[in-house]
């Protein structure tokens, strides 16, 4: 670790500690190593006084805002959230300019055939797929979107619902030609980027009736954020949510978690992640690189939308 960073870290945290009425007894000045060890141990307790504020390996580090003026217009930077699959991979070794370009072309081509609406994690969707094994060769599934991942043609999203008291999740490849229709039943955002914790939450939070009627989103209004916080089932879970807890905003306070569970989660922490500039640089794609992509995508998507509008009008006139 860079000694300058270490020193800044110590002084910052020391100030915080003194404000929070805790006693730090170091006899001979501040021993950086000793202090960091003490600090780390205290933080792992994850009490109200010492909240565990570090990000973990499993969570993507939050995007830091740059001091420079943004290159992207607000309209284009919104596309980043609506169509994240158009960006190159998060892994720098998997990026390839020609491959990405060809995939983007294929994706836009597919979008001319089927209407893939924009949605977020937390929205309620219904997907109709042609399935050779289903009765009537078509199967429809409605559920809440709990994750959205993958770049390019590998982009996928997962829907979760509870049917007859049994939790069911289906992952859909977005650009698979067997997809017939994607309906947005309710467009909204949640507090987190992934809702995998719904697996261990009470079942009422992931239940939606299969014949749910679509909720109309008034045009021109921003997408509503649902600040719902879920209650979890009693302690032993399928994943160690207590280790990730401070980074998950959509959970109410965890109860009856034994102290040793926090101690065990020690290895899950990459303590100095927030100082790791290279990690952040590798994970994110610079705005200058994004600009080229989004300008192209925006133009093409606009054309597709216009063609669709004309078709809809023609159908409407024919039916009358």
């Amino acid at each position: 670790m860079n000694p300058i960073f270490a020193f800044r870290n110590v002084s910052e945290t020391l100030c915080k500690r003194q404000l929070s009425t805790t006693k730090v007894n170091f006899k001979h000045g501040v021993n950086v190593k000793k202090f960091l060890k003490w600090d780390r141990e205290k933080r792992r307790l994850n009490t109200d006084e010492f909240p565990d504020e570090y990000t973990t390996r499993n969570c993507r580090s939050p995007r830091k805002s740059s001091f420079k003026q943004s290159v992207l217009t607000p309209q284009l930077s919104e596309l980043r959230l609506l169509y994240p699959e158009f960006l190159p991979s998060n892994f720098p070794e998997r990026r390839h300019k020609i491959k990405d370009l060809l995939e983007r072309e294929d994706m836009l081509k597919r979008r001319t055939q089927v209407d893939l609406p924009s949605f977020y994690v937390g929205s309620i969707l219904a997907v109709t797929v042609s399935d050779p094994y289903a009765a009537g060769k078509v199967s429809r599934f409605l559920g809440i979107c709990i994750s959205r991942e993958g770049q390019g043609l590998r982009a996928n999203f997962t829907l979760r619902n509870i049917i007859d008291g049994e939790g069911v999740e289906i992952r859909y490849d977005m650009y698979n030609p067997t997809i017939r229709e994607v309906e947005v039943i309710k467009l909204e955002k949640r507090l987190d980027d992934e809702l995998y914790y719904l697996r261990d939450a009470l079942p009422e939070y992931s239940y939606f009736p299969q014949d749910m009627l679509p909720v109309v989103q008034p045009p021109g209004e921003p997408v509503p954020l649902n600040p719902l916080k879920v209650k979890m089932k009693p302690y032993p879970w399928t994943k160690r949510w207590e280790a990730l807890y401070p980074n998950i905003k959509g959970i109410v306070n965890l109860e009856n978690v034994p102290q040793h569970a926090y101690r065990r989660s020690r290895n899950a922490h990459y303590v100095n992640e927030r100082f790791d500039l290279m990690k952040e640089y590798r994970e994110h794609i610079t705005e200058e690189d994004q600009l080229e992509i989004w300008e192209n995508v925006h133009e093409r998507l606009d054309k597709i939308a216009q063609i669709r509008k004309v078709e809809r009008r023609r159908k409407f006139l024919q039916s009358n």
Binding site: E166, G167, Y172
Partner: peptide, 28 residues
């Protein structure tokens, strides 16, 4: 992709001749 994942490992019992023991499956 397109294959459901469940919250529990489910099974249906069979008798010796390979026919199901019950008359109904209660989950999808």
């Amino acid at each position: 992709a397109f294959v459901p994942r469940f919250d529990s490992n489910n099974c249906v019992l069979l008798d010796d001749s390979g026919n199901p023991l019950g008359t109904r499956i209660l989950v999808p």
